[in-house]
Computed example of a mutant assay.
Amino acid sequence: MTYQGVLRKMTTELSDPIQYYLLFETDFIHMNQLLEKTINIKFVGYECLNCGLNKTIFRQGFCKSCFFDIPQAADWIMKPELSTAHLDKEDRDLEYEKRVQLQPHIVYLANSSNVKVGVTRKSQVPTRWIDQGAHEAIEIVEVPNRYLAGITEVALKEHVADKTNWRTMLKNDIADEDLVTWREKLKQYIPDEAKEYYIASNSETNIHFPVLHYPTKPKSLNLDKTPNYTGKLVGIKGQYLIFEDDTVFNVRSNEGYVVAISIA
């Protein structure tokens, strides 16, 4: 059976283990059901997630012209501290920026390759943690806008990591951490503007991924260099498909690529 469509990050469902779904325009694949099956991924073309044209993807699933124009790819997406909607100040599209920035945001600690701090909209919990391949996570503050979350993250990353080592995450070469203790330790570094939003009462969330075998030396599949790949699926973690030969495929970093997926 063959499915064809434009890649977007997999949809997830919090259960034990996480359930993964790859959604195409007219179909979907329940990826957990493909474990231990041989699948072929074939590159077909590009489809910008904004304009829909067959143009080379630049970043985040967008072609170059869209990336530098649309509000969904503005700098404040990756750097929340640059948010200005709370000041009624436009970056690219104030209506969009108010809709996204002026809603509850969570600053959290997650353990994927190490303990790291991050920011997400409250509506994206626990999706954000799953996408990062975190096996445990906890909230630190819940603030009313993206700017406050951003400045809190900037302050905390002086004392804890803000990046995930994807190879360590995929190899599962990680230790359990006491995130409640980490949260208590970092509380003192929360900026004054955000101190009132500190969360002291919740416990950590534990996440289990559908992985049969972890790779020992993960190597990333690049569709531009290898437009046709066949392998046996042995795991899914974060937004990565893990294959028996240690090849890993990051679905999210290939958003906007049109592929044909065949199942043996």
Results as ranks from 00 to 15, higher is better:
Ser112Arg: 01
Val107His: 05
Leu14Glu: 06
Arg128Pro: 03
Tyr257Phe: 14
Asn32Met: 13
Ile138Tyr: 00
Gln72Gly: 05
Thr38Tyr: 09
Ile190Asp: 05
Tyr189Lys: 05
Lys185Gly: 04
Met169Cys: 11
Tyr240Cys: 02
Gly52Arg: 02
Ile140His: 03
Ala110Cys: 09
Tyr147His: 04
Asp69Lys: 15
Lys55Arg: 11
Tyr3Pro: 15
Met78Phe: 04
Gln124Ile: 01
Lys37Trp: 07
Glu13Ala: 10
Asp69Thr: 13
Asp16Pro: 13
Thr226Lys: 14
Tyr189Leu: 03
Leu87Ala: 09
Gly61Trp: 03
Thr168Trp: 10
Leu94Pro: 07
Asp176Phe: 10
Gly118Met: 09
Met1Leu: 09
Lys116Val: 08
Asp224Gln: 14
Glu90Lys: 08
Glu142Asn: 06
Leu241Cys: 13
Glu47Lys: 04
Trp166Leu: 05
Ala74Asn: 06
Asp246Leu: 13
Glu204Thr: 08
Asp173Thr: 08
His135Tyr: 08
Trp76Gln: 03
Cys63Glu: 02
Thr120Trp: 00
Thr2Leu: 14
Glu13Arg: 14
Glu95Asn: 14
Asp131His: 07
Ile236Ser: 12
Ala134His: 00
Val234Ala: 13
Arg167Ala: 13
Leu102Lys: 03
Leu7Ala: 06
Gly231Arg: 04
Arg59Ile: 08
Ile77Trp: 00
Tyr189Cys: 02
Glu153Tyr: 03
Val154Phe: 02
Ser203Phe: 14
Thr11His: 06
Glu47Phe: 08
Ile41Ala: 05
Lys237Met: 11
Ala161Pro: 11
Val248Ala: 10
Asn254Thr: 11
Lys9Asn: 12
Glu255Ile: 05
Tyr229Trp: 15
Gln103Asp: 06
Leu170Cys: 11
Asn145Lys: 04
Leu82Cys: 05
Ile138Asn: 08
His30Asn: 05
Glu142Ala: 04
Phe24Gln: 03
Lys217Leu: 10
Ile261Tyr: 15
Phe243Trp: 12
Cys48Asp: 02
Ile174Ala: 11
Ser201Asn: 05
Trp76Tyr: 09
Ile190Val: 05
Glu255Met: 12
Val125Pro: 00
Ala200Tyr: 03
Ser123Phe: 00
Asn54Asp: 15
Leu14Val: 09
Pro104Glu: 00
Ile106Asp: 03
Tyr257Leu: 13
Leu7Asn: 06
Arg59Leu: 13
Arg99Asn: 12
Ile236Cys: 00
Thr181Gly: 09
Ala264Leu: 15
Glu204Tyr: 01
Asp178Glu: 15
Phe249Leu: 14
Tyr229Thr: 12
Gln4Lys: 10
Ile199Met: 07
Lys225Asn: 10
Ala194Leu: 03
Gln124Cys: 02
Gln124Ser: 00
Gly256Val: 06
Asp131Trp: 04
Phe58Gln: 02
Asp27Lys: 05
Leu233Ser: 12
Ile70Arg: 04
Gln33Tyr: 12
Tyr214Arg: 11
Tyr197Asp: 07
Asn202Cys: 07
Glu158Ile: 02
Gly231Asn: 09
Tyr96Lys: 07
